[in-house]
Design a protein around this nucleic acid. Structure first.
Lengths: 220, 220
DNA sequence: ATGTCAATATTGTTCAACAATATTTCTGTA
DNA sequence: TACAGAAATATTGTTGAACAATATTGACAT
Protein backbone atom coordinates (compact mmCIF):
# COMPACT_ATOMS: atom_id res chain seq x y z
CA UNK A 1 0.00 0.00 0.00
CA UNK A 2 2.59 2.49 -1.08
CA UNK A 3 -0.12 4.80 -2.44
CA UNK A 4 2.14 7.07 -4.41
CA UNK A 5 -0.91 8.68 -6.00
CA UNK A 6 0.03 7.77 -9.48
CA UNK A 7 -2.91 9.57 -11.01
CA UNK A 8 -1.88 12.95 -9.65
CA UNK A 9 0.44 15.32 -11.49
CA UNK A 10 4.12 14.97 -10.73
CA UNK A 11 4.37 18.26 -8.88
CA UNK A 12 1.68 17.21 -6.41
CA UNK A 13 3.32 13.89 -5.76
CA UNK A 14 6.65 15.64 -5.29
CA UNK A 15 5.12 18.12 -2.88
CA UNK A 16 3.74 15.25 -0.86
CA UNK A 17 7.07 13.48 -0.69
CA UNK A 18 8.90 16.62 0.37
CA UNK A 19 6.19 17.42 2.91
CA UNK A 20 6.79 14.01 4.45
CA UNK A 21 10.49 14.74 4.70
CA UNK A 22 9.74 18.09 6.28
CA UNK A 23 7.38 16.92 9.00
CA UNK A 24 9.54 13.90 9.77
CA UNK A 25 12.38 16.27 10.49
CA UNK A 26 14.71 14.90 7.84
CA UNK A 27 15.11 18.42 6.52
CA UNK A 28 16.26 20.83 9.18
CA UNK A 29 14.55 24.23 9.60
CA UNK A 30 16.50 26.95 7.89
CA UNK A 31 18.17 24.53 5.53
CA UNK A 32 18.39 25.60 1.94
CA UNK A 33 16.84 23.34 -0.68
CA UNK A 34 18.90 23.50 -3.85
CA UNK A 35 16.92 23.05 -7.03
CA UNK A 36 19.75 21.18 -8.71
CA UNK A 37 20.30 18.84 -5.77
CA UNK A 38 16.65 17.97 -5.32
CA UNK A 39 15.80 17.57 -8.97
CA UNK A 40 18.69 15.11 -9.10
CA UNK A 41 17.64 13.38 -5.88
CA UNK A 42 14.07 12.81 -7.04
CA UNK A 43 15.03 12.36 -10.66
CA UNK A 44 12.68 15.04 -11.95
CA UNK A 45 13.21 18.19 -13.93
CA UNK A 46 13.89 21.49 -12.26
CA UNK A 47 10.61 22.83 -13.61
CA UNK A 48 8.53 20.15 -11.96
CA UNK A 49 10.42 20.62 -8.73
CA UNK A 50 9.81 24.34 -8.79
CA UNK A 51 6.08 23.76 -9.11
CA UNK A 52 6.23 21.55 -6.03
CA UNK A 53 8.23 24.18 -4.15
CA UNK A 54 5.58 26.77 -4.95
CA UNK A 55 2.86 24.62 -3.43
CA UNK A 56 4.83 23.98 -0.26
CA UNK A 57 5.71 27.65 0.02
CA UNK A 58 2.03 28.48 -0.14
CA UNK A 59 1.51 25.95 2.64
CA UNK A 60 3.97 27.82 4.83
CA UNK A 61 6.38 24.91 5.05
CA UNK A 62 8.98 26.54 2.83
CA UNK A 63 10.12 30.11 2.59
CA UNK A 64 11.06 31.62 -0.73
CA UNK A 65 13.68 34.34 -1.08
CA UNK A 66 14.06 35.97 -4.47
CA UNK A 67 17.15 34.84 -6.35
CA UNK A 68 18.34 32.98 -3.27
CA UNK A 69 16.19 29.88 -3.31
CA UNK A 70 13.80 28.13 -0.94
CA UNK A 71 14.49 27.32 2.69
CA UNK A 72 12.77 25.14 5.23
CA UNK A 73 10.60 27.43 7.34
CA UNK A 74 11.93 28.12 10.82
CA UNK A 75 9.24 28.06 13.51
CA UNK A 76 9.32 31.20 15.60
CA UNK A 77 7.55 32.42 18.71
CA UNK A 78 5.22 34.50 16.62
CA UNK A 79 4.35 31.63 14.29
CA UNK A 80 3.53 29.39 17.26
CA UNK A 81 1.36 32.10 18.78
CA UNK A 82 -0.37 32.54 15.45
CA UNK A 83 -0.90 28.82 14.93
CA UNK A 84 -2.50 28.43 18.35
CA UNK A 85 -4.67 31.44 17.75
CA UNK A 86 -5.96 29.68 14.64
CA UNK A 87 -6.43 26.42 16.51
CA UNK A 88 -8.43 28.10 19.27
CA UNK A 89 -10.66 29.74 16.69
CA UNK A 90 -11.24 26.61 14.63
CA UNK A 91 -11.29 23.85 17.19
CA UNK A 92 -13.26 25.67 19.85
CA UNK A 93 -15.65 26.92 17.20
CA UNK A 94 -16.15 23.44 15.83
CA UNK A 95 -16.77 22.03 19.30
CA UNK A 96 -19.16 24.77 20.35
CA UNK A 97 -21.51 24.01 17.49
CA UNK A 98 -21.02 20.25 17.68
CA UNK A 99 -24.07 18.11 17.25
CA UNK A 100 -24.25 15.09 19.53
CA UNK A 101 -24.79 12.53 16.78
CA UNK A 102 -22.05 13.72 14.50
CA UNK A 103 -19.95 10.84 13.15
CA UNK A 104 -16.73 12.74 13.86
CA UNK A 105 -17.34 12.22 17.55
CA UNK A 106 -16.80 8.54 17.01
CA UNK A 107 -13.46 9.36 15.38
CA UNK A 108 -12.54 11.48 18.39
CA UNK A 109 -13.25 8.56 20.70
CA UNK A 110 -11.18 6.24 18.54
CA UNK A 111 -8.27 8.65 18.59
CA UNK A 112 -8.41 8.81 22.38
CA UNK A 113 -8.41 5.01 22.62
CA UNK A 114 -5.50 4.79 20.23
CA UNK A 115 -3.55 7.43 22.14
CA UNK A 116 -4.00 5.54 25.39
CA UNK A 117 -2.85 2.30 23.83
CA UNK A 118 0.24 3.95 22.38
CA UNK A 119 1.00 5.66 25.65
CA UNK A 120 0.82 2.37 27.54
CA UNK A 121 3.25 0.95 25.00
CA UNK A 122 5.52 3.95 25.64
CA UNK A 123 5.39 4.77 21.93
CA UNK A 124 5.43 8.53 22.19
CA UNK A 125 5.42 9.37 18.54
CA UNK A 126 2.37 7.09 18.26
CA UNK A 127 0.76 9.18 20.97
CA UNK A 128 1.57 12.23 18.92
CA UNK A 129 -0.09 10.84 15.79
CA UNK A 130 -3.19 9.81 17.71
CA UNK A 131 -3.28 13.29 19.15
CA UNK A 132 -3.18 14.84 15.69
CA UNK A 133 -5.98 12.52 14.62
CA UNK A 134 -8.03 13.67 17.55
CA UNK A 135 -7.76 17.32 16.61
CA UNK A 136 -8.41 16.60 12.95
CA UNK A 137 -11.60 14.83 14.02
CA UNK A 138 -12.65 17.94 15.91
CA UNK A 139 -12.28 20.02 12.78
CA UNK A 140 -14.39 17.42 10.96
CA UNK A 141 -17.22 18.44 13.26
CA UNK A 142 -17.54 21.65 11.29
CA UNK A 143 -18.35 19.77 8.07
CA UNK A 144 -16.36 22.13 5.88
CA UNK A 145 -13.95 20.94 3.24
CA UNK A 146 -12.25 24.33 3.22
CA UNK A 147 -11.69 24.36 6.96
CA UNK A 148 -10.39 20.81 6.80
CA UNK A 149 -7.96 21.72 4.07
CA UNK A 150 -6.82 24.80 5.93
CA UNK A 151 -6.34 22.84 9.11
CA UNK A 152 -4.19 20.31 7.32
CA UNK A 153 -1.83 23.11 6.40
CA UNK A 154 -1.76 24.35 9.99
CA UNK A 155 -1.20 20.84 11.29
CA UNK A 156 1.75 20.39 8.95
CA UNK A 157 3.30 23.59 10.23
CA UNK A 158 2.71 22.42 13.77
CA UNK A 159 4.48 19.16 13.09
CA UNK A 160 7.39 21.20 11.80
CA UNK A 161 7.46 22.88 15.21
CA UNK A 162 7.31 19.54 16.99
CA UNK A 163 10.32 18.38 15.04
CA UNK A 164 12.29 21.22 16.53
CA UNK A 165 11.88 19.83 20.01
CA UNK A 166 12.90 16.58 21.58
CA UNK A 167 11.06 15.09 24.56
CA UNK A 168 7.89 13.88 22.78
CA UNK A 169 6.70 12.16 25.96
CA UNK A 170 6.33 15.33 27.93
CA UNK A 171 4.95 17.06 24.85
CA UNK A 172 2.02 14.75 24.07
CA UNK A 173 1.27 12.44 26.98
CA UNK A 174 -0.25 14.92 29.42
CA UNK A 175 -3.00 15.72 26.94
CA UNK A 176 -4.43 12.26 26.49
CA UNK A 177 -6.70 12.46 29.51
CA UNK A 178 -7.85 15.95 28.54
CA UNK A 179 -8.83 14.60 25.14
CA UNK A 180 -10.87 11.95 26.90
CA UNK A 181 -12.64 14.54 29.02
CA UNK A 182 -13.45 16.71 26.00
CA UNK A 183 -14.76 13.73 24.05
CA UNK A 184 -16.97 12.73 26.95
CA UNK A 185 -18.40 16.22 27.10
CA UNK A 186 -19.43 16.28 23.45
CA UNK A 187 -20.75 12.74 23.71
CA UNK A 188 -22.99 14.00 26.52
CA UNK A 189 -24.14 16.94 24.45
CA UNK A 190 -22.28 19.62 26.36
CA UNK A 191 -20.57 21.37 23.46
CA UNK A 192 -19.98 24.69 25.20
CA UNK A 193 -18.23 23.05 28.13
CA UNK A 194 -16.18 21.02 25.68
CA UNK A 195 -15.16 24.19 23.87
CA UNK A 196 -14.20 25.86 27.14
CA UNK A 197 -12.12 22.87 28.12
CA UNK A 198 -10.45 22.90 24.72
CA UNK A 199 -9.53 26.52 25.17
CA UNK A 200 -7.67 25.84 28.40
CA UNK A 201 -6.14 22.78 26.71
CA UNK A 202 -4.81 24.86 23.84
CA UNK A 203 -3.57 27.63 26.10
CA UNK A 204 -1.62 25.07 28.08
CA UNK A 205 -0.28 23.42 24.96
CA UNK A 206 0.78 26.78 23.59
CA UNK A 207 2.68 27.62 26.75
CA UNK A 208 4.36 24.22 26.72
CA UNK A 209 5.33 24.75 23.12
CA UNK A 210 6.71 28.23 23.64
CA UNK A 211 8.66 27.14 26.68
CA UNK A 212 10.15 24.23 24.76
CA UNK A 213 11.08 26.45 21.85
CA UNK A 214 12.70 28.89 24.24
CA UNK A 215 14.82 26.14 25.73
CA UNK A 216 15.73 24.82 22.28
CA UNK A 217 16.75 28.24 20.98
CA UNK A 218 18.81 29.31 23.97
CA UNK A 219 20.71 26.05 23.75
CA UNK A 220 21.67 26.89 20.18
CA UNK B 1 0.31 53.51 -8.83
CA UNK B 2 0.24 50.51 -11.08
CA UNK B 3 2.00 48.43 -8.42
CA UNK B 4 2.81 45.46 -10.60
CA UNK B 5 4.95 44.04 -7.82
CA UNK B 6 8.09 43.99 -9.85
CA UNK B 7 10.11 42.38 -7.12
CA UNK B 8 7.98 39.26 -6.97
CA UNK B 9 8.63 36.21 -9.11
CA UNK B 10 6.85 36.07 -12.42
CA UNK B 11 4.49 33.27 -11.43
CA UNK B 12 3.17 35.29 -8.48
CA UNK B 13 2.63 38.35 -10.62
CA UNK B 14 0.87 36.23 -13.21
CA UNK B 15 -1.33 34.64 -10.57
CA UNK B 16 -2.32 38.07 -9.38
CA UNK B 17 -3.20 39.27 -12.86
CA UNK B 18 -5.28 36.19 -13.58
CA UNK B 19 -6.96 36.43 -10.18
CA UNK B 20 -8.03 39.95 -11.10
CA UNK B 21 -9.51 38.68 -14.33
CA UNK B 22 -11.33 35.94 -12.45
CA UNK B 23 -12.95 38.08 -9.78
CA UNK B 24 -13.82 40.78 -12.26
CA UNK B 25 -15.77 38.20 -14.20
CA UNK B 26 -13.79 38.52 -17.41
CA UNK B 27 -13.25 34.78 -17.34
CA UNK B 28 -16.48 32.86 -17.16
CA UNK B 29 -16.90 29.99 -14.69
CA UNK B 30 -16.34 26.64 -16.35
CA UNK B 31 -14.25 28.17 -19.10
CA UNK B 32 -11.15 26.29 -20.04
CA UNK B 33 -7.84 28.16 -19.79
CA UNK B 34 -5.55 26.96 -22.55
CA UNK B 35 -1.87 27.02 -21.65
CA UNK B 36 -0.88 27.97 -25.16
CA UNK B 37 -3.40 30.77 -25.44
CA UNK B 38 -2.58 32.32 -22.07
CA UNK B 39 1.18 32.03 -22.34
CA UNK B 40 0.80 33.89 -25.63
CA UNK B 41 -1.59 36.44 -24.16
CA UNK B 42 0.66 37.31 -21.24
CA UNK B 43 3.83 36.80 -23.24
CA UNK B 44 5.34 34.33 -20.81
CA UNK B 45 6.52 30.77 -21.14
CA UNK B 46 4.21 27.84 -20.59
CA UNK B 47 6.28 26.78 -17.59
CA UNK B 48 5.82 30.08 -15.78
CA UNK B 49 2.14 30.04 -16.57
CA UNK B 50 1.75 26.55 -15.19
CA UNK B 51 3.29 27.66 -11.91
CA UNK B 52 0.74 30.45 -11.70
CA UNK B 53 -2.09 28.02 -12.49
CA UNK B 54 -0.98 25.81 -9.62
CA UNK B 55 -1.17 28.66 -7.16
CA UNK B 56 -4.65 29.64 -8.29
CA UNK B 57 -5.77 26.04 -8.22
CA UNK B 58 -4.63 25.82 -4.61
CA UNK B 59 -6.67 28.95 -3.96
CA UNK B 60 -9.79 27.23 -5.25
CA UNK B 61 -10.25 29.68 -8.11
CA UNK B 62 -9.24 27.19 -10.78
CA UNK B 63 -9.96 23.52 -11.10
CA UNK B 64 -7.39 21.17 -12.54
CA UNK B 65 -8.32 18.03 -14.48
CA UNK B 66 -5.54 15.63 -15.37
CA UNK B 67 -4.54 15.78 -19.03
CA UNK B 68 -7.46 18.09 -19.72
CA UNK B 69 -6.26 21.40 -18.40
CA UNK B 70 -7.44 24.01 -15.96
CA UNK B 71 -10.92 25.48 -15.80
CA UNK B 72 -12.40 28.43 -13.99
CA UNK B 73 -14.10 27.06 -10.87
CA UNK B 74 -17.87 26.93 -11.06
CA UNK B 75 -19.58 28.04 -7.84
CA UNK B 76 -22.07 25.47 -6.67
CA UNK B 77 -24.64 25.25 -3.92
CA UNK B 78 -22.29 23.19 -1.83
CA UNK B 79 -19.38 25.59 -2.27
CA UNK B 80 -21.55 28.52 -1.20
CA UNK B 81 -22.76 26.61 1.83
CA UNK B 82 -19.18 25.74 2.67
CA UNK B 83 -17.94 29.29 2.22
CA UNK B 84 -20.59 30.68 4.52
CA UNK B 85 -19.85 28.01 7.08
CA UNK B 86 -16.26 29.24 7.06
CA UNK B 87 -17.34 32.84 7.29
CA UNK B 88 -19.59 32.17 10.27
CA UNK B 89 -16.77 30.39 12.03
CA UNK B 90 -14.15 33.05 11.34
CA UNK B 91 -16.11 36.28 11.46
CA UNK B 92 -18.30 35.41 14.43
CA UNK B 93 -15.28 34.02 16.24
CA UNK B 94 -13.27 37.16 15.58
CA UNK B 95 -16.12 39.38 16.77
CA UNK B 96 -16.80 37.34 19.89
CA UNK B 97 -13.28 37.87 21.19
CA UNK B 98 -13.02 41.43 19.94
CA UNK B 99 -11.33 43.91 22.21
CA UNK B 100 -12.95 47.32 22.33
CA UNK B 101 -9.79 49.27 21.55
CA UNK B 102 -8.66 47.18 18.62
CA UNK B 103 -7.56 49.32 15.66
CA UNK B 104 -9.51 47.12 13.24
CA UNK B 105 -12.73 48.53 14.69
CA UNK B 106 -11.76 51.85 13.23
CA UNK B 107 -11.38 50.16 9.84
CA UNK B 108 -14.84 48.64 10.24
CA UNK B 109 -16.33 52.06 10.89
CA UNK B 110 -14.54 53.50 7.87
CA UNK B 111 -15.86 50.70 5.68
CA UNK B 112 -19.40 51.42 6.83
CA UNK B 113 -19.02 55.11 6.08
CA UNK B 114 -17.61 54.33 2.66
CA UNK B 115 -20.42 51.90 1.90
CA UNK B 116 -23.03 54.49 2.77
CA UNK B 117 -21.39 57.08 0.56
CA UNK B 118 -21.23 54.68 -2.38
CA UNK B 119 -24.82 53.62 -1.85
CA UNK B 120 -26.00 57.21 -1.88
CA UNK B 121 -24.12 57.61 -5.17
CA UNK B 122 -25.92 54.50 -6.46
CA UNK B 123 -22.51 52.93 -7.15
CA UNK B 124 -23.36 49.36 -6.29
CA UNK B 125 -20.06 47.77 -7.05
CA UNK B 126 -18.51 50.40 -4.79
CA UNK B 127 -20.92 49.26 -2.09
CA UNK B 128 -19.73 45.74 -2.70
CA UNK B 129 -16.06 46.65 -2.28
CA UNK B 130 -16.77 48.55 0.91
CA UNK B 131 -18.66 45.53 2.15
CA UNK B 132 -15.69 43.28 1.48
CA UNK B 133 -13.45 45.74 3.30
CA UNK B 134 -15.79 45.61 6.26
CA UNK B 135 -15.56 41.85 6.57
CA UNK B 136 -11.81 41.85 6.06
CA UNK B 137 -11.56 44.30 8.94
CA UNK B 138 -13.53 41.88 11.10
CA UNK B 139 -11.03 39.15 10.38
CA UNK B 140 -8.27 41.58 11.30
CA UNK B 141 -9.74 41.57 14.80
CA UNK B 142 -8.31 38.10 15.29
CA UNK B 143 -4.74 39.35 14.78
CA UNK B 144 -3.66 36.28 12.86
CA UNK B 145 -1.71 36.43 9.65
CA UNK B 146 -2.77 32.89 8.76
CA UNK B 147 -6.45 33.60 9.25
CA UNK B 148 -6.11 36.76 7.20
CA UNK B 149 -4.42 34.91 4.40
CA UNK B 150 -7.03 32.16 4.49
CA UNK B 151 -9.85 34.67 4.45
CA UNK B 152 -8.39 36.36 1.42
CA UNK B 153 -8.71 33.08 -0.44
CA UNK B 154 -12.30 32.67 0.73
CA UNK B 155 -13.12 36.23 -0.24
CA UNK B 156 -11.75 35.65 -3.73
CA UNK B 157 -13.94 32.60 -4.14
CA UNK B 158 -16.89 34.60 -2.89
CA UNK B 159 -16.26 37.30 -5.47
CA UNK B 160 -16.27 34.58 -8.08
CA UNK B 161 -19.76 33.69 -6.88
CA UNK B 162 -20.85 37.33 -6.99
CA UNK B 163 -19.76 37.51 -10.60
CA UNK B 164 -22.21 34.79 -11.40
CA UNK B 165 -25.14 36.97 -10.42
CA UNK B 166 -26.38 40.27 -11.68
CA UNK B 167 -28.37 42.64 -9.49
CA UNK B 168 -25.54 43.95 -7.26
CA UNK B 169 -27.87 46.49 -5.68
CA UNK B 170 -30.13 43.94 -4.11
CA UNK B 171 -27.10 41.83 -3.24
CA UNK B 172 -25.12 44.35 -1.22
CA UNK B 173 -27.24 47.34 -0.25
CA UNK B 174 -29.48 45.71 2.36
CA UNK B 175 -26.44 44.86 4.47
CA UNK B 176 -25.02 48.34 4.95
CA UNK B 177 -27.20 49.16 7.92
CA UNK B 178 -26.51 45.79 9.51
CA UNK B 179 -22.80 46.51 9.23
CA UNK B 180 -23.41 49.76 11.02
CA UNK B 181 -25.29 48.02 13.83
CA UNK B 182 -22.55 45.42 14.27
CA UNK B 183 -19.86 48.07 14.32
CA UNK B 184 -21.74 50.03 16.94
CA UNK B 185 -22.01 46.93 19.09
CA UNK B 186 -18.28 46.25 19.12
CA UNK B 187 -17.55 49.93 19.65
CA UNK B 188 -19.71 49.71 22.76
CA UNK B 189 -17.89 46.60 23.95
CA UNK B 190 -20.69 44.13 23.29
CA UNK B 191 -18.77 41.52 21.30
CA UNK B 192 -21.12 38.62 21.93
CA UNK B 193 -24.12 40.56 20.70
CA UNK B 194 -22.13 41.65 17.69
CA UNK B 195 -21.26 38.03 16.94
CA UNK B 196 -24.88 36.98 17.28
CA UNK B 197 -25.95 39.75 14.92
CA UNK B 198 -23.27 38.70 12.46
CA UNK B 199 -24.55 35.16 12.51
CA UNK B 200 -28.03 36.21 11.46
CA UNK B 201 -26.43 38.54 8.92
CA UNK B 202 -24.47 35.71 7.37
CA UNK B 203 -27.41 33.32 7.41
CA UNK B 204 -29.45 35.90 5.55
CA UNK B 205 -26.66 36.58 3.09
CA UNK B 206 -26.23 32.88 2.48
CA UNK B 207 -29.91 32.44 1.71
CA UNK B 208 -29.84 35.43 -0.63
CA UNK B 209 -26.83 33.98 -2.38
CA UNK B 210 -28.32 30.52 -2.76
CA UNK B 211 -31.59 31.91 -4.03
CA UNK B 212 -29.77 34.03 -6.58
CA UNK B 213 -27.68 31.11 -7.74
CA UNK B 214 -30.81 29.01 -8.07
CA UNK B 215 -32.41 31.63 -10.29
CA UNK B 216 -29.23 31.98 -12.34
CA UNK B 217 -28.89 28.25 -12.89
CA UNK B 218 -32.49 27.52 -13.76
CA UNK B 219 -32.36 30.26 -16.34
CA UNK B 220 -29.44 28.48 -18.01
C1' DA C 1 -27.64 7.22 -35.68
C1' DT C 2 -23.77 4.60 -33.59
C1' DG C 3 -19.35 2.72 -32.87
C1' DT C 4 -14.45 2.26 -34.40
C1' DC C 5 -10.17 3.92 -35.68
C1' DA C 6 -6.95 7.16 -37.44
C1' DA C 7 -5.61 12.21 -37.31
C1' DT C 8 -5.06 16.11 -34.57
C1' DA C 9 -4.52 19.03 -30.55
C1' DT C 10 -3.45 19.59 -25.68
C1' DT C 11 -1.33 18.62 -21.56
C1' DG C 12 2.76 16.45 -18.89
C1' DT C 13 7.50 16.45 -18.44
C1' DT C 14 12.15 16.95 -19.64
C1' DC C 15 16.20 19.25 -21.34
C1' DA C 16 19.29 22.86 -22.69
C1' DA C 17 20.25 27.51 -22.83
C1' DC C 18 20.90 32.15 -21.21
C1' DA C 19 20.05 36.40 -18.25
C1' DA C 20 19.97 38.15 -13.65
C1' DT C 21 21.37 37.88 -9.18
C1' DA C 22 24.20 35.92 -5.10
C1' DT C 23 28.16 33.95 -3.28
C1' DT C 24 32.85 32.91 -3.19
C1' DT C 25 37.59 33.60 -4.47
C1' DC C 26 41.16 36.35 -5.60
C1' DT C 27 43.89 40.39 -5.47
C1' DG C 28 45.98 44.65 -4.24
C1' DT C 29 46.52 48.02 -0.80
C1' DA C 30 46.85 50.13 3.77
C1' DT D 1 47.18 40.86 8.91
C1' DA D 2 42.96 42.99 7.74
C1' DC D 3 39.99 44.69 4.46
C1' DA D 4 37.79 46.74 0.23
C1' DG D 5 36.85 45.87 -4.26
C1' DA D 6 36.83 43.14 -8.47
C1' DA D 7 36.78 38.93 -11.00
C1' DA D 8 35.15 34.21 -11.15
C1' DT D 9 31.78 30.98 -10.00
C1' DA D 10 27.40 29.06 -8.76
C1' DT D 11 22.42 29.51 -8.30
C1' DT D 12 18.04 30.99 -9.39
C1' DG D 13 14.66 33.05 -13.03
C1' DT D 14 12.78 32.38 -17.36
C1' DT D 15 12.46 30.84 -21.89
C1' DG D 16 11.92 27.78 -25.99
C1' DA D 17 11.85 23.49 -28.06
C1' DA D 18 11.15 18.74 -27.95
C1' DC D 19 8.71 14.44 -27.17
C1' DA D 20 5.51 11.15 -24.69
C1' DA D 21 0.95 10.46 -22.92
C1' DT D 22 -3.64 11.51 -23.08
C1' DA D 23 -7.87 13.61 -24.86
C1' DT D 24 -10.66 15.43 -28.65
C1' DT D 25 -12.11 15.53 -33.30
C1' DG D 26 -13.46 13.78 -37.57
C1' DA D 27 -14.01 10.30 -41.14
C1' DC D 28 -15.73 6.05 -42.23
C1' DA D 29 -18.27 1.76 -42.14
C1' DT D 30 -22.21 -0.63 -40.41
Amino acid sequence: MTDDGDGLPLADRLARRIRTLLISGELAPGQRLSEAAFSERFDVSRNSLREAFRLLTKDGLLRHEANRGVFVAVPSMSSIIDIYRVRRMLECGALRQAWQQHPAIRAMREAVTMARRERDAANWIGVGSANMKFHAAIIDLSDSVRLNEFYERIAAELRLCFGLLNDPEHLHSPFVEMNDAITTLVENDKPHEAAAQMETYLNLAERTMLKALERASEKA
